[in-house]
Design a protein around this nucleic acid. Structure first.
Length: 881
RNA sequence: GGGCGAUUAGCUCAAUUGGCAGAGCAUCCGGUUUACACCCGGAAGGUUGUAGGUUCGAGUCUUACAUCGCCCACCA
């Protein structure tokens, strides 16, 4: 079958022109949709980790896009019904913060404009900013099915959230109640454990005296003196001789004079601080546990904004830190303070707002998570879900095995409102609770104002986006999905919760494989940040170099699960590689002559270089397949680059010019077919890495099929892999290298044609029969064979490569002394290698115990080196005469 | 306190079952032969963090340590 290529390939790849055009074409043709595959095709589905709806593209998005699009394009080319389902997350806290900032800039606030107006403004904001990231993903070449794009606050997804919440409630897995929760005073909402980040900070440890009845004092240390006002006990260790006599006595809260007990508990560490512990159950998780154990009172002294409430007596109304200072002053005046010292400890801060989080008692909604966690653990244990790299499974298990109930309510306005109603009963406004879509019949029901944690809705993402809880065709066909590709930083936040909720609600793990990538960091391991000014903006890169170089660089810069330090010079290198591939295609294109049959000539009709490049190509395809199978995409990209840049271009392409320019019709045809075959395979292999250039270049190669995006993924042909051919060719190429070096050493003008003489041998025959190799690669006009027993030619530089002895007649250029010295240098190099190999083979243990093929390799090497050494000796001897 | 990762050329990183440690950038030398100066040919650059162990053979497996980073955990 004859195939045609477009002609007049542009000299350069104009990414700015090509990218939008090709992208629109792909999309219009429907190739991003799984329906473009045959109906019986197996599905391959990735749910895109939904970016924040109002966010804009950063380098992390670019990384996931590059990786996921690579996976999708690869599977699409393998004939799967590939579906990459895009979408956006409403991102409760992040979005609300942005809108609140906007309101602040306008001189107003969400409280001032009220709930309805605030939601209205937020939706408006979403409509304005919402398309940004989607447009940016398109510029990167993301082949998502945009018609299936979803947003977590869409009707369908909101329905999924309702269904999930109500189901869990009905199963008794959701409860509401007052608990000590992490409270963010700035945001005035509860946050989950995961949303609190604790880092060591320099603080002050305050030492003071707790007055005890009878005039005694109990020394206590704290980092948060204001919480003294909420103390309901002082605890000491039961065996502590210093304080044992005080156990059971009454102590008095400083300034407030409130009476509290001195209790004993072995939780107290006698060695730490003063050995006595103030107990503040209302504002400390440990103390809360202690209080439950000892049935202590619980006192809340903070308002929602972390100012002091009425329980703080005269300090009511003060900010927590003002109170800290004032109380300490008063205590000092009262003679109750001992000292302060600097102290390093971990301070819990809100991941979003950054302000210090306070444990506060508050009524919240919780998911009883253990039953869900158990299922999620089992699914990974039994391999229904695989995590790549595997070491994260351990992290995953550890978290799930120690999981705490999930606080899912947030006191925000932007999000899924919890489907619950309250009715006052016996003076308690929440005396009656109803969970459901609608309030029960009767008057007085008030809807819950709290919304759900953003991660609750994203936890349903892989199935809610496909229509769940409706039994849609998409859900049936595309769920469970195959791949969840995301950052390891949201393993707990998102991945674990999707697995838990997916297994619980759909009875299926939501995906088969979790591939975790790392963070993209700047040179030196620094985090990219705007303040440091070291951020690489993906769009700037795309504008400067195109999307392909950015994608290729991101994919080849890292390994699964590890952070990658992005080196900007790699971007330029990728750009040059992409240009290189374009130029290679252009070269082949311009040497075509009309239609070409897309078949390789039979092996027997192919010359040594052609059989060599086909062997190398098929070995490459094998390797790439292996690397894709184990998700080592970066290494795969690197190997394709190395093959093209270091083997195909500098050797085969160059050698082929002989046939193309001076060969017979048959030779021309064979060269064209081989060139087209190899380049075509490479473009296919590269397509998932650099879709734009490869698609555009492919049009200029003879091809069948409409587009590269839907072309078949290459499969290795084992018949074409041939060790012997590769060995023969590499000897020839070694000869080329040596001739080049020798020419260089004798300063032979590169443009000057020289001739060469080789002593007859099998390898020398290869060289002679493939004269184009030497002609094209080192400008050697003709190679004459010398009978094995002939005399050494005179006035020649000599080269020894394995069993090949080459002589370069360098009339008038040869300096005997210099040549002797050069050969002596060669000899020394060989002697070094020889020594190593001889030593290995002299080792009886090596010969007996090493794998036979390894031993054989060493033996072959020894023979080669010995032959080379012998020839060098001969040559040196003659020169010496 | 527990866990994980990293440590390889000046810098950023590779190295598929243990089998001659490799790229890119930077450096140095040499090149304008009709695909590509977004190029080509060469050179230099290494005790693979340290000290042991296993092995015929270790960057790779193992033990300890060091430094850096990350995650988890309730010591005021």
């Amino acid at each position: 079958m004859n195939a045609q290529a477009e002609s007049d390939m542009p000299r350069n790849f104009d990414f700015a022109e090509v990218e939008p055009r090709v992208y629109d074409w792909w999309e219009r043709q429907g190739w991003f949709k799984p329906e473009s595959a045959p109906a019986e095709a197996a599905p391959y589905v990735i749910s895109m980790p939904p970016p924040n709806v109002t966010g804009s593209l950063h380098i992390g998005h670019a990384l996931f896009t590059a990786l996921e699009d690579l996976m999708i394009r690869y599977e699409r080319m393998r004939g799967k019904a590939a579906l990459w389902l895009p979408g956006a997350d409403h991102a409760g806290i992040a979005t609300q913060l942005q809108v609140e900032k906007m309101l602040r800039d306008e001189g107003t606030s969400r409280e001032a404009i009220g709930y309805e107006e605030f939601l209205h403004r937020t939706w408006q904001w979403k409509e304005e900013k919402g398309g940004t990231i989607t447009r940016q993903l398109r510029r990167l070449g993301a082949s998502c099915d945009w018609e299936r794009e979803r947003f977590t606050l869409d009707d369908g997804l909101s329905e999924a959230v309702l269904r999930a919440f109500i189901t869990l409630w009905e199963q008794g897995l959701i409860y509401r109640g007052p608990r000590l929760v992490n409270w963010s005073p700035g945001l005035k909402t509860a946050v989950s454990d995961l949303e609190v980040e604790s880092n060591e900070e320099e603080v002050t440890l305050y030492f003071f005296r707790y007055p005890v009845e009878g005039g005694a004092h109990l020394p206590v240390a704290t980092t948060r003196p204001e919480t003294i006002l909420g103390d309901t006990a002082v605890a000491v260790h039961p065996n502590d001789e210093r304080y044992r006599h005080l156990i059971g006595k009454r102590a008095f809260v400083p300034i407030l004079e409130r009476e509290i007990p001195v209790i004993a508990d072995d939780y107290v560490d006698m060695e730490f601080g003063t050995g006595a512990l103030k107990v503040t159950p209302g504002h400390d998780f440990n103390d809360y546990e202690l209080a439950r154990k000892h049935d202590l009172k619980l006192l809340n002294i903070l308002n929602q904004d972390a100012s002091m409430n009425a329980a703080a007596g005269k300090y009511a109304g003060l900010d927590r830190y003002e109170c800290r200072d004032e109380l300490w002053r008063d205590m000092t005046a009262a003679g109750l303070t001992i000292k302060t010292e600097p102290y390093r400890t971990r301070i819990p801060r809100s991941q979003r707002g950054g302000e210090v989080v306070e444990p506060i008692m508050s009524a919240q909604w919780f998911v009883r998570i253990q039953p869900l966690a158990d299922k999620a653990i089992a699914a990974v244990r039994d391999g229904r879900v695989k995590i790549v790299p595997q070491r994260f499974e351990k992290v995953y298990f550890h978290w799930l095995e120690n999981i705490q109930d999930w606080c899912v309510s947030r006191q925000l306005w932007w999000g899924h409102r919890i489907p619950a109603w309250y009715r006052e009963k016996d003076g308690d406004p929440e005396g009656e609770i109803h969970v459901g879509r609608e309030p029960p019949k009767g008057d007085g029901w008030v809807m819950e104002r709290d919304v759900l944690d953003t991660w609750f809705s994203s936890g349903l993402w892989p199935f809610s986006t496909l229509g769940w809880p409706q039994e849609t065709a998409d859900l049936a066909r595309f769920y469970p999905t195959q791949m969840m590709e995301t950052g390891h930083d949201i393993l707990f936040f998102w991945v674990a919760r999707m697995i838990m909720l997916g297994l619980w609600l759909t009875d299926e793990p939501p995906f088969h494989t979790v591939y975790l990538h790392g963070l993209v960091r700047a040179e030196g391991g620094l985090k990219f940040s705007k303040t440091l000014g070291n951020a690489i903006d993906p769009l700037t890169v795309v504008n400067r170099l195109g999307a392909d170089p950015l994608r290729f660089t991101l994919i080849t810069s890292g390994t699964p699960g590890n952070d990658c330090h992005l080196d900007e010079t790699r971007l330029d290198h990728s750009f040059r590689f992409i240009n290189k591939v374009w130029q290679m295609t252009a070269f082949i294109n311009m040497n075509l002559d009309g239609a070409l049959e897309l078949l390789l000539p039979p092996k027997a009709a192919l010359d040594l270089p052609s059989r060599w490049i086909l062997s190398r190509l098929n070995r490459l395809i094998e390797n790439v397949q292996y690397l894709f199978d184990i998700h080592q995409y970066g290494e795969a990209g690197g190997q394709i680059l190395a093959f093209m840049w270091d083997e195909f271009a500098p050797f085969y392409l160059e050698i082929s010019k002989q046939a193309l320019y001076q060969g017979s019709d048959a030779q021309k045809n064979a060269a064209r077919q081989t060139l087209v075959h190899v380049q075509d395979a490479c473009l296919r292999l590269l397509h998932p890495f650099m879709p734009f250039m490869t698609e555009e270049a492919w049009r200029y190669l003879p091809h069948q099929g409409e587009a590269l995006i839907i072309a078949d993924w290459p499969r290795a042909n084992g018949d074409l892999i041939d060790d012997a051919i590769e060995a023969r060719m590499s000897l020839c190429l070694e000869a080329v290298r040596e001739i080049r070096n020798t020419r260089g050493e004798f300063a032979v003008d590169p443009g000057r044609r020289i001739s060469a003489i080789a002593r007859e041998s099998a390898a020398a025959k290869d060289l002679a029969e493939n004269a184009q190799i030497l002609r094209r690669l080192c400008n050697v006009e003709a190679l004459t064979l010398l009978p094995a027993d002939a005399d050494e030619p005179q006035n020649c530089a000599s080269i020894v490569v394995g069993e090949i002895s080459l002589y370069l007649p360098l009339e008038g250029l040869l300096d005997v002394a210099a040549e002797s010295q050069r050969l002596a240098g060669e000899k020394a190099k060989i002697a070094e290698k020889l020594a190593r190999t001889e030593k290995m083979l002299a080792n009886q243990n090596f010969v007996e115990r090493a794998r036979p093929d390894v031993v054989q390799r060493e033996r072959d090497r020894l023979a080669d080196l010995q032959a080379a050494a012998a020839r060098l000796d001969e040559r040196l001897a003659r020169l010496g005469q």
